[in-house]
Design a protein around this nucleic acid. Structure first.
Length: 422
RNA sequence: GGGGAGGUGCCAGAGUGGUUGAAUGGGACGGUCUCGAAAACCGUUGUGGGCUCCGGUCCACCGAGGGUUCGAAUCCCUCCCUCCCCGCCA
């Protein structure tokens, strides 16, 4: 959510932001119009309320019945006008809120302007592309051959885009989760175990509603959403709180499953486990003072990269351009790992500084140590790697000619010492 | 699932229709005192919003949302949450 004052005082900034994101700028004018209408209505209705309050006090003090009756009658009429105006204000505010909540964050000056993901900028590539003296197989062939991945049974018990991990496959994923969480703990994050279902206000606070309702699973009976990412409950953690400056920054890490309907990407990435309706992820999250968020974004990026390095991945860091930037984000780095079987770079992490965008929606502030006015915090989020794509990279890059897969050394403690899955 | 109690400011806790945005106590912060501290005393201590000659002023907020009334923290309705007892399930 953007600051209404910012939109009012600097509409061109917002228009440019929308343009750079390849979006329609007309909502800005609509907001300005509604904002003006709202303030005009408020001036009227508040004057009436002030009058009613004052006269009502007089009525309370008045002893004379006739005077009281006259005043009560007058105030009854004022009350009717207040009700009508209040209704108008509520309508205008609802419309204003609906439009404002659909405006994305303003990209950072350092976010390159571009029209689509084609114009994302590769900042750096680390490691060499692995070489094979045989034709490396994609994971959708490798996994079933090893008996650790079962697509048919996944679709049988649930439907398309669901799969079953079996035996060492399931264990490998669990090893990755434990490894990542422990690594993030060493990097200074505090582990959280969170609800996997959240209320509407929580999803709104994280910026997933109303815009992305189509992508969410919902229990309509209980009015609860299944989390699409741990970012949602991690934002909710301090919703409607005023933190102390001394508490900041807060570093959190959490493992959660993620549930996404993927209506937008129907027909895309249908092969393998790259894009499922249910997948696991370890997430990093920060609450910071505004002046620290730029620096800490780099820490979070380094922490995500450290995970890739420890697993022996060849990876590259991309800077997203305005055309591909997420709704909440001002600046985002994507980390992509090379997968030798399907021959592509897979996005395993997205590290973003959303500044005060989520904090405004979720109402998360901090009180400066000098006792000044409470200010919105900045929040940052980043995947400590999405699990399916990490699994793909391990299976495809560590495969051997006989179809077996070498387990990365750092994971072996959680694999009962198993060195090769065969 | 059945029965009962409750949700008020940073905390505890009054307040059942009219100067109550909210008593009282505690905490925190500032000041006086002190070599310093404690004690004591004095003061300050919410959020959002409108207008503003930027000195203020007005509006809203006592779990959330509606309603009654000239006027609601106080009355009514719905929902949410917490606690206790019983039942049920793990």
């Amino acid at each position: 959510m953007l600051d209404l004052n910012l939109i009012r005082e600097n509409p061109d900034l917002v228009r440019t932001a929308l343009q750079n994101r390849q979006m329609d700028v007309s909502p800005v004018d609509e907001i300005l119009r509604l904002d003006e209408k709202r303030r005009s209505l408020l001036t009227q209705v508040e004057a009436l309320k002030a009058e009613r309050n004052a006269v009502s006090k007089e009525i309370g003090r008045s002893k004379e019945a006739a005077t009281r009756e006259t005043k009560i009658a007058a105030m009854r009429e004022v009350g009717d006008r207040i009700s009508a105006l209040d209704k108008e204000v509520a309508d205008v505010e609802a419309e204003l809120h609906a439009i404002t909540s659909a405006i994305p964050n303003i990209p950072d000056e350092r976010t390159p302007v571009g029209t689509s993901e084609e114009e994302n900028v590769v900042l750096r590539t680390t490691g060499q592309l692995p070489e094979f003296d045989f034709e490396p197989k994609p994971h959708w062939d490798l996994g079933p051959a090893l008996g650790i991945l079962d697509f048919e049974r996944g679709t049988k018990i649930t439907g398309s885009r669901f799969y079953v991990l079996k035996g060492p496959g399931a264990r490998l994923q669990r090893a990755l989760i434990a490894f990542m969480l422990d690594l993030h703990i060493r990097q200074g994050y505090t582990e959280q175990y969170l609800p996997f279902m959240v209320r509407t206000a929580t999803v709104f606070g994280a910026g997933q509603l109303p815009k992305f309702a189509d992508n969410l699973y919902k229990d309509h009976e209980e009015d609860l959403y299944f989390v699409p990412t741990a970012e949602v409950p991690l934002t909710g953690l301090h919703m409607d709180e005023i933190l102390e400056e001394a508490q900041l920054p807060l570093f959190y890490t959490a493992y959660t499953p993620c549930f996404r309907r993927e209506k937008m990407s129907a027909g895309r990435d249908v092969r393998g486990i790259k894009r499922g309706h249910q997948f696991d992820k370890v997430e990093m999250y920060m609450y910071t003072k505004p002046e620290d968020s730029d620096t800490l974004l780099e820490k979070m990026r380094e922490d995500a990269e450290a995970t890739c390095s420890a697993l022996g991945f060849t990876y590259r860091v991309k800077q997203l351009c305005t055309g591909d930037l997420g709704f909440n984000s001002a600046i985002t780095y994507d980390i992509e790992v090379w997968a030798a079987g399907c021959n592509e770079w897979l996005e395993v992490s997205s590290v973003s500084n959303v500044r005060d965008f989520q904090a405004r929606r979720a109402n998360i502030k901090y009180r400066p140590s000098d006792g000044g006015k409470a200010r919105f915090v900045h929040t940052l989020n980043g995947s400590g790697l999405g699990l399916p794509r990490t699994l793909i990279a391990i299976l495809e890059n560590n495969q051997q000619a006989d179809g077996s897969v070498v387990v990365p050394e750092v994971l072996r403690p959680w694999m009962g010492g198993v060195e090769v899955i065969k």
